[in-house]
Nucleic acid binder design. Sequence first.
DNA 1: AAACTCTCTAAAGCCACTTCAGGGTCAAGC
DNA 2: GCTTGACCCTGAAGTGGCTTTAGAGAGTTT
Lengths: 149, 149
Amino acid sequence: MKIGELAKKLNCTVETIRYYEKIGLIPASIRDQNNNYRHYNQSHIEKLTFVRHCRALAMSHEEILELQKARAQSGQSCHEIDKVIDNHLLHVSSRIIELQALEEQLLALRKQCLTPGSNENCGIIQGLDTPLIESLSIDKKVSHVTGSH
Amino acid sequence: MKIGELAKKLNCTVETIRYYEKIGLIPASIRDQNNNYRHYNQSHIEKLTFVRHCRALAMSHEEILELQKARAQSGQSCHEIDKVIDNHLLHVSSRIIELQALEEQLLALRKQCLTPGSNENCGIIQGLDTPLIESLSIDKKVSHVTGSH
DNA sequence: AAACTCTCTAAAGCCACTTCAGGGTCAAGC
DNA sequence: GCTTGACCCTGAAGTGGCTTTAGAGAGTTT
């Protein structure tokens, strides 16, 4: 299977696959000796499926590498694996709480301007001109699950 | 006021302030003629307060620039301002919904391994080896509020 | 043979900063 | 007057997880 077909199968771009190979998230593909095209077999598909599933769950590359490493320790307990998932769940749930706090602040701000007038008197602008309450800025070290855009 | 004092006042780093100036998110500071140090007055403080408040609400630089532009149109209605906030609220709430769906998937996955055994038989690994259900990958164009870490 | 699609590589761009390297400035204490 | 340490300066590179661009070779269709 060539890279384009694999990309379609896994609902990602060929660039993403090449990028994963480059950074070592998936093993190097086999190359066609004539034209240097990448070729993939079942084992490659499985490895990429795993990575894409992890990414769809918003795991970082580092977390994925940890999972791959833990899984490779044959015969070992899967305690390490559980730990990675538990930690990541913490990342996600703390990010949800952060964003919910943010949403509330934004809704409160929005209510300052229910009847649009001139922008000089806009309650939103007035609200934004005042500093934020400290408590909102939640500890950013907890989660790698960032951003909102 | 020098940059270090301003940074403390606004709970950010001096590097961030210099960066904002560089990309034009805040106007250039006044410079001390002797040593080229940046100096800030009340007007600068207000502008940076506005930007930091917007950023604390997870607005993108682009959104902040839109707000600044809208506000500068004196005499105009604040309809544009409302629109930016409404749009951003959409970003945030759709990201919350995404992350909640993600959290559920992760919890379901976690339940596959309640009694840790060998990692070969770990239900989490088995779960990650299967492709994701398409419906999870929500339209990523909606929100700039991304990530989880 | 031309046109179109697929593949390749290396490098740059994105966002919102942070970090680094290598300096200059200034006040306090010896 | 000299050192120490805190602060300031600039420009460039690094972060993560890709995406985009530029330029070129390979393969298929007309």
